[in-house]
Design a protein around this nucleic acid. Structure first.
Lengths: 353, 353
DNA sequence: GGATAGCACTCTCTCAGCGAGAGTGCTAAT
DNA sequence: ATTAGCACTCTCGCTGAGAGAGTGCTATCC
């Protein structure tokens, strides 16, 4: 079943044929027959030969027929082979690169803006659904906190971590506190905590001042949240794109597949599990085909996922979701390019340290 | 065509019948015939009589037949009549009220949390797609600004307006600036601008200090953005709900209708235009049925929309979107209740001033 | 005179049957 | 090893008949 052991069995001609079939199927969305193949591409052998080869490819598990007398359709293994070929070549055309790069450098230097833009670009280029999660540091270090009184007892706490990560939280105090007192607390805590990692802060002795202590507890809580493997917001775009794909003509199919984007928790679990197990990992990208037998809802879908950011410092996840019959040739380079771009941007941001 | 002029023509029996038909159709999603009606509900007259009445109702434009020999289906005017009846009664069951209220009071006192929750509750209760936009003050007044250096030349500006509205923005300075210098700028600006409205601030003389001036420009820009009728984020939930409705069995229909949720700009335009013209306005709620002849994509859809917040101070929009055959009886009270709840919360937040 | 029963009519929906078309697998010839 | 030919299979689209549902009209009843 593993493509690694089967690859050697393929002759050059079989490879060519297989790639041709998959490419054609991705475009046409219809089972590919031997005759059609022989006619459309100038191949120097006949349809009968193709039939023989197709039978062989089917035997090996790369192709399958929806019914006895239809054309052939790629199996998951077929797609995997296709993708493994794809990986080596596949650079994004330079004009497209420039267009995308331009968009990013024109946007304000805000991580959220970049993520929104990345989601938009990915969805648009791939005609699939895109997902982008915020980058976060593996081991967050405290840099700075700010308390801003907004309304009566309500206070906005802005926590800045080394690396530029910013999180914020509203809190309601037991009683109104003047902005001066808040400022004093801020000054004390900033002096005390600067540069410390979560575990250090957590092991500090309790503060005598009640307000200080409360805020510190919240800081710890915030840092913990930020340390979760996939924390913060998830940006998504292009949800309706997949609705035009023929495999989702039945809304029930589409519903099942899209439901998970409605629940951030499921989505995070998926991304988590994906970035952990590296089955389809090539060149920094992961390609999940047909749910890899694990996600029942994604049996007919694929995901292309990449991590971005600065390894060990601050990384996030980004990817594209679509039908198994998605345009890998266009999507893979796009995902790779956008991941690289975002990494550079994050890197530049951090470089200041 | 206007229901106001036609209402008087309806006899009591016709009203009863019309309501019955619409209610049944909303449940069954199938054209309602006279026989079915006579059998299922214990009515003290025969199907022939019902037929006569139905013919009359069809004549008046409340019902229509998909084809000569099918049952009757409500027209837009039919739904409008139904909704106008609905408006008077229709309180949410108290248990449901308590459940919802409980959820809100358990959540952290953060407007974004509330909006997310509202979107979730609305989508869940109505089985439709929910939309919630942030409340914003019509005439924003400056309260406080904070500058937080995050990374090298990058600074996070947090702007707090009277009323508790908070907006933030990343900016990149031409050259690194120490946190002290930032603090000085902050102190100066806070002293200068406190309590001023946008127009006042805009008419102030330019600052001699370059940094001060830059920040002030950004503040004005931010306040202007916040003054847009629908600014900031749009929270949405339940996108996949409508996919299970039979009217969206064809994905193309669903795609057309859902596409607008992908583009915040279109959505904002819709909400804007809706809250302006008050055609279907009853008791603070607006019910848009069948796109009201304006939105071609929404020909088969309805929206129930309400403003929330404190009138004249800070208001936002919230609503539910679904097929025309949506459960108004459940959705209208829910929208109304959630709008009230959110208004109270916003009110409490502002009360501190 | 309003309500009702009866009836003819219309229209959709479903299903079986049939032919066309596409594609295969096998065999025999090159 | 490759290819041409052929029988076979399966889907798809079309057609026509029958069932079912519902209507509108008319004659009748209270």
């Amino acid at each position: 079943m593993n493509s690694m052991t089967e690859l050697p069995e393929l002759t050059e001609r079989q490879k060519t044929l297989l790639l041709l079939i998959i490419r054609d199927y991705i475009e046409s969305a219809q089972p590919i027959g031997s005759k059609r193949l022989a006619e459309h591409y100038n191949i120097n052998f006949s349809s009968a030969t193709i039939r023989n080869e197709m039978a062989a490819l089917a035997e090996m598990g790369y192709l399958r027929q929806p019914h006895t007398s239809a054309g052939r359709v790629p199996t998951e293994d077929g797609y995997r082979f296709f993708v493994s070929q794809m990986m080596h070549q596949a650079e994004l055309p330079e004009t497209v690169q420039r267009t995308i790069s331009h968009q990013f450098h024109q946007s304000p230097p805000d991580i959220e803006q970049w993520m929104t833009l990345a989601a938009s670009v990915l969805a648009h280029q791939s005609q699939g659904v895109s997902v982008v999660t915020a980058p976060h540091a593996r081991k967050a270090k405290y840099k700075h906190v700010e308390l801003i009184s907004t309304q009566g007892r309500q206070v906005l706490m802005v926590l800045v971590l080394l690396g530029g990560e910013v999180s914020q939280q509203f809190l309601t105090l037991a009683e109104p506190v003047s902005q001066e007192r808040l400022s004093q607390t801020v000054t004390r805590l900033n002096g005390l905590l600067a540069g410390l990692a979560l575990d250090k802060i957590a092991s500090l002795p309790a503060r005598s001042d009640a307000l200080d202590q409360d805020i510190m507890t919240l800081i710890i809580q915030d840092m913990r949240r930020s340390a979760d493997s996939v924390s913060g917001e998830v940006f998504t775009d292009g949800l309706t794109n997949v609705l035009s794909e023929p495999e989702f003509k039945e809304t029930e199919e589409a519903r099942r597949a899209l439901k998970m984007f409605g629940e951030p928790s499921t989505l995070k679990a998926l991304l988590d599990r994906t970035t952990a197990g590296g089955k389809g990992r090539v060149g920094g990208l992961q390609v999940l085909i047909g749910g890899e037998g694990v996600w029942e809802e994604l049996r007919e879908c694929s995901m292309i996922i990449a991590r971005y950011g600065v390894p060990g410092m601050s990384t996030g996840t980004l990817g594209v979701f679509g039908p198994m019959r998605m345009s890998y040739a266009r999507t893979i380079p796009t995902v790779r390019y956008v991941a690289g771009l975002l990494s550079d941007l994050v890197n530049d941001t951090i470089a200041g340290e």
